[in-house]
Design a protein around this nucleic acid. Sequence first.
DNA 1: GCCAACGTTGGC
DNA 2: GCCAACGTTGGC
Length: 150
Amino acid sequence: MRYWLMKSEPSEVSIDDLESMKTVPWYGVRNYQARNFMRDQMRVGDMVFFYHSSCAEPGIAGLAEVCKLAYPDETQFEEGKYFDPKATRENPRWYNVDVKFSRKIPLISISELRRHPELSNMRILQKGNRLSITPVDPLEWDYIKSNLLR
DNA sequence: GCCAACGTTGGC
DNA sequence: GCCAACGTTGGC
């Protein structure tokens, strides 16, 4: 079982949206590295920190779980901002897993995360990091669960 | 709104 | 295959 951190803009899909929808396809990823994590490494049962990005209070807002293996992202075929003219049904370019709500937590802000030297290697805290899906080291996962999660 | 960092694109 | 230009991300 692996651990992940997945960024979502709350104006798009927030932890409250996930709670009310129960499960959500993680559509719209258009970065190859992030796609590869979903397509090649995520398994059902993997645990996820649900992270709010590009908002007033960025940080970990909840816990979720991978509940369906990667399959072609439907939005690449549809009109709209995620449409990809180079993608075909025979040759899809983008994939997504489904993610299931686990629980909401009191926000662990990015500034709070930065306060802990134990977490200083987390991808999310590195300067210039823009990757929307990153693996979380099991030690970092446990540290956050036992020290920062209420 | 700014801007640093980084990924992608496309001309050569 | 290089690399400049451009677009996007995301914290601040």
